[in-house]
C-alpha cells in the first residue's frame, strides 16, 4: 500500500504545482504510515532524484518522448497500470491543466472516487474525507471517498512545499506506449511570462484603466514584482488584454500569495476567481467599490497616480534590503 503522486513536467522541468503535490502526498503517506512514490511521464532534464527531499523515496518513470505532450488517454492508461503494479491506494495530482485532463480519467478507469480541487490533508480518523473548494472559492465541502482506491487533485498554491533531506531512486517503468490519437501541430508559449496559475503574485487590471494603451503602468508594477498579469472579464471581452488573462468565475481561478486589483470594482463573479488569494490589495478611486470588502489592504485613489508611485516605492524598498 502506498501513495502515488503524479509528477507533472513541461519542457523537461518539474512544475512548482507538482512539488506541492509531492509534499502533500508525502504528508498523507506519513499520516497513514505508508510509502510515498512518484510517477513521471516523458523525458525530463531536471534531476529527479533531488525530489526525494520533498518526501518521496522512489519515482517511476516512463522515459519516452512520445509522452512529452499530454494525451489524457495514454496517460490514464499508464498511470492506472502503475497504480496496479505498485499497489498504490491513494493517487495524488495537482489540479492544474494536466491534472484537469488526466486525474478524473484515471479515476474512472480504476473505478476510484475522486476529489478534485482539494485544499487540505484528508481526515482519515473516520473514513477518508477530503476538503475541497466549491462555489468557485466561496465555500468548502468535505467529501468522503468511498472506493478502495482514492484519487485527489490538489489546488495549486494551497499547500506549502517543504524541502527536507532525501534522495529518490528512479525506476524505469517498462510500459509500451500506444500511438497517440492526438497530433500536436503547434505549441505557443507566451515566452517570458509567468503562468498565471503558478504565479506567487498577480497584478490585475479592470475597466478603471480605461483602455489597453494604459496598461504600461500595470506591466511596470508586475515586472518589478516578478508578477503575472491578469484582468477582469470586460477587459478580456474588449480585447484590451488576451482572453487567457481573464480571471473570475468564468475565467481562470487563481490563488496567489498576493493579488493586486487595479481599477476593478470587485463584482461577485470576479471575486469568485480570486478569493483564494492569501493577501488582496485593492486600488480603486471609488471608496464604495465592493472589492474593498474582500481586501486586506487598500488605497482609495486614482490608479494613474498611485500605481507608478507604488512601483517606485517597491523598487526603493528592494534596493534597501
Amino acid at each position: 500500500m502506498s501513495v502515488l503522486i503524479f509528477i507533472d513536467q513541461s519542457d523537461g522541468h518539474v512544475k512548482k504545482s507538482s512539488l506541492e503535490a509531492i509534499t502533500y502526498g508525502a504528508d498523507i503517506a506519513k499520516q497513514l504510515g505508508i510509502a510515498a512514490e512518484g510517477i513521471v511521464l516523458g523525458t525530463v532534464s531536471d534531476d529527479l532524484t533531488a525530489l526525494g527531499k520533498y518526501g518521496i523515496s522512489k519515482i517511476h518513470q516512463v522515459n519516452n518522448n512520445a509522452l512529452d505532450h499530454v494525451d489524457a488517454q495514454l496517460y490514464a492508461k499508464i498511470i492506472a497500470e502503475a497504480v496496479t503494479l505498485s499497489g498504490a491506494k491513494i493517487l495524488v495530482f495537482s489540479h492544474n491543466q494536466t491534472g484537469k485532463a488526466v486525474a478524473a480519467r484515471v479515476a474512472a478507469r480504476l473505478k476510484a472516487g475522486i476529489v478534485s480541487g482539494a485544499c487540505a490533508l484528508p481526515d482519515t480518523s473516520n473514513g477518508f474525507v477530503v476538503k475541497k473548494t466549491v462555489f468557485s472559492g466561496k465555500a468548502f465541502a468535505n467529501i468522503s471517498i468511498l472506493s478502495d482506491i482514492k484519487v485527489i487533485s490538489l489546488n495549486p498554491n494551497s499547500y506549502q512545499t517543504i524541502a527536507g533531506e532525501g534522495i529518490a531512486t528512479i525506476a524505469d517503468l517498462n510500459i509500451t506506449v500506444a500511438p497517440s490519437r492526438i497530433k500536436v501541430t503547434a505549441i505557443n508559449k507566451v515566452s517570458g511570462e509567468i503562468p498565471l496559475t503558478e504565479a506567487d503574485i498577480v497584478v490585475s487590471g479592470g475597466r478603471g484603466l480605461k483602455g489597453p494603451e494604459n496598461w504600461g503602468i500595470l506591466l511596470d508594477l508586475a515586472k518589478e514584482l516578478g508578477a503575472a498579469t491578469a484582468c477582469s472579464r470586460p477587459v478580456g471581452d474588449a480585447h484590451w488584454r488576451p482572453h487567457h488573462e481573464h480571471v473570475g468565475q468564468t475565467g481562470v481561478q487563481v490563488a496567489p500569495n498576493l493579488y493586486i486589483a487595479i481599477g476593478i470594482s470587485g463584482a461577485i463573479q470576479h471575486l469568485a476567481g480570486v478569493n483564494r488569494s492569501k493577501v488582496i490589495v485593492v486600488i480603486n478611486k471609488d471608496a464604495e467599490a465592493p472589492f474593498f470588502k474582500a481586501a486586506d489592504y487598500g488605497i482609495v485613489g486614482d490608479a494613474f497616480e498611485v500605481v507608478p508611485q507604488l512601483t517606485a516605492a517597491i523598487k526603493k524598498m528592494k534596493a534597501s534590503v
Binding site: A141, S144, L146, A295
Partner: peptide
C-alpha cells in the same frame, strides 16, 4: 464513489486596512 459530508464557509476577512493615496 463519493459523498458530500458537510460544507463550510471561509472565515470572514478581518477588514481592509486603508492606506492614504
Amino acid at each position: 464513489l463519493s459523498s458530500i459530508i458537510s460544507f463550510e464557509l471561509p472565515p470572514a476577512k478581518a477588514g481592509v486596512k486603508l492606506v492614504a493615496a
